[in-house]
Amino acid sequence: MFEAQMAQAALLKQIIESIRELITEATFEVSGTGMMLQAMDSSHVSLVALNLRSDGFQLFRADRPFSMGMNLNHMAKMLKCAGKDDTLTMRADEANDLVTFLFESPGNERLAEFELKLMDITSENLGIPDAEYSATVSMPSAEFQRIVKDLGSIGDTVEITVTKDDVRFAASGDIGNATIKCRQLLDTEKPEDRTLIEMVEPVNLTFALRYLINFSKATSLAPSVTIKLSTEMPVVVEYKLSDIGYVRFYLAPKIED
């Protein structure tokens, strides 16, 4: 038996909306520690890792580890039917291949029950080592989204360079070139407006912009985004979900052959 209750159905809806273009099918692994999902996009260039800790839920019960394979577009269809302030309760048991989403209005006057068919998904699970990164940049998530969208209109790839003074995003294409340089900014009223650059050694890496633009669909989930980089390693783009966990996106770099 699995049962979990979230104060805001809208949170899970937003999470699924932010990843469903990248991965259409995925398996949620449920255990006493929470709900986790890891999946590669169909071209195996990027990877999404979602972690929702059990203590971030209002109620969480998982008698034993349980896998729930879901089509995320179908899940999104159902989650769209939740009212904006509805609570969400998820229920599933191993006896039937269904997960139930219960949407309850704040005054308890409306209770909607949606049952989604579960599916068997065979996918490779990758072990992601806890690595030290050469550079870690935290910046407002809206600023990161603006940068990747703006550069996406110039070129297909972005060259990210981190030095101790700044982080540069550069793109070039048929119409010309663009460079956006962000300096460290610590003296802000709100901590989420900061741009923080932690550099062990300078890095310079190139990535496909369309994936980064896709990752930035998670902007509404967190005011700030953390980008971790090491030479010839996948970049990590992390959105922290307050009090419950994170969504991390990994993207393999482009490397000269």
Partner: peptide, 14 residues
Amino acid sequence: VSGQRSISTFFATK
């Protein structure tokens, strides 16, 4: 820049 690497070349399959 040319080659797009696959993510699975960096992280081993569990």
